[in-house]
């Protein structure tokens, strides 16, 4: 029984796809996620441990290889990693930040990812998200926590017409259905 986690293929996604209007959305499977909290004093050390520059502005993403850190607040990052990288990251932070002045919480299963792509995506997002997606206001590389209808989401603009959305697992069907619902209004 020891290898159930490895041998049982469990979908982190729900029976989501296939609704009318959801052609702009694709479930993102797998991946590890951490909520990383680092006070100002530890920024440099934590960045070195991760190989990511954490000193950049709030609401921006930094990536290196398969590691991405979305800076959601002054002391808060959402780390998006390959599942196999999770233990390495945890270990290197604990080795580097010996004073323990940081917090790393595994939230891999707390939320799931949805990839959004297409010229209509900003319009679809504006069906329920109040932010301005003009590239001047929400440039490529911006990432922020915000709201989509009644659900909290994290939105990361990877390209002009490509976004990665993170949503808590129990809100995912609701968010997906609404994305599809609004998406029905767009042919492409």
């Amino acid at each position: 029984m020891d290898n159930l986690a490895e041998t049982t293929s469990l979908s982190r996604l729900f029976a989501l796809s296939g609704q009318a209007g959801d052609r702009h959305c694709r479930p993102v499977t797998g991946g590890a996620r951490f909520s990383l909290r680092v006070p100002q004093a530890s920024l440099g050390a934590a960045g070195e441990a991760l190989g990511l520059d954490l000193t950049g502005p709030i609401n921006r993403a930094v990536s290196a290889g398969q590691r991405t850190a979305l800076r959601l607040g002054p002391d808060e990052w959402l780390l998006l990693l390959a599942e196999t990288d999770a233990a390495t990251v945890a270990a290197s932070l604990s080795q580097r930040l010996t004073d323990g002045l940081y917090s790393l919480a595994d939230i891999s299963h707390r939320q799931t990812g949805i990839a959004l792509e297409g010229v209509a995506v900003t319009d679809i997002l504006n069906g329920g998200c109040p932010l301005d997606f003009d590239p001047a206001a929400f440039p490529v590389g911006m990432a922020t926590r915000t709201i989509f209808f009644k659900a909290e989401i994290v939105l990361w603009r990877q390209d002009l017409t490509r976004f990665h959305m993170e949503v808590w697992r129990s809100f995912a069907p609701y968010v997906w259905s609404l994305l599809a619902n609004v998406g029905c209004e767009y042919a492409d």
Binding site: R37, S103, A105, D106, I107, H109, R110, Q111
Partner: peptide, 12 residues
């Protein structure tokens, strides 16, 4: 206080 809070309701 050096302490940080994370919701893990849906993690488990």
């Amino acid at each position: 206080l050096n302490v940080w809070l994370t919701s893990t309701t849906e993690q488990y």
